[in-house]
Amino acid sequence: MHQIDCPWCGTRDEAEFQYQGDATVQRPKPDADEETFFRYVYARENPKGWHVEWWHHVAGCRQWIKVVRNTLTHEIDSTGGPQSKLTKPDEKGGTKS
């Protein structure tokens, strides 16, 4: 069972959270064209490996938090608030495999 380190509440069970998908996609500016919005809603990288994603702490502080998690191993590298700039371990210069 995933143990997720909520920046506000500390480490909690995955059962307290609602997963909310890829956190790397950015909502376009309102005047962006339909294609840009299309990619925001539908285009996903779906990586095998590190994935930056949203987990919503619904049974806790109600914060949307960012989690860097490995989709092959379920290992979690880091967590942060909604505006944090988290990077994947394999993009930090190979500190972790």
Binding site: Q18, Q20, W54, H56, V58, R62, Q63, W64, P82, Q83
Partner: peptide, 17 residues
């Protein structure tokens, strides 16, 4: 009820802080 609240939290925390 619960889904709308989550939707609003996304909007305020993630989209338009």
């Amino acid at each position: 009820a619960a889904r709308v609240l989550a939707h609003m939290e996304h909007a305020s925390q993630v989209l338009w802080p």
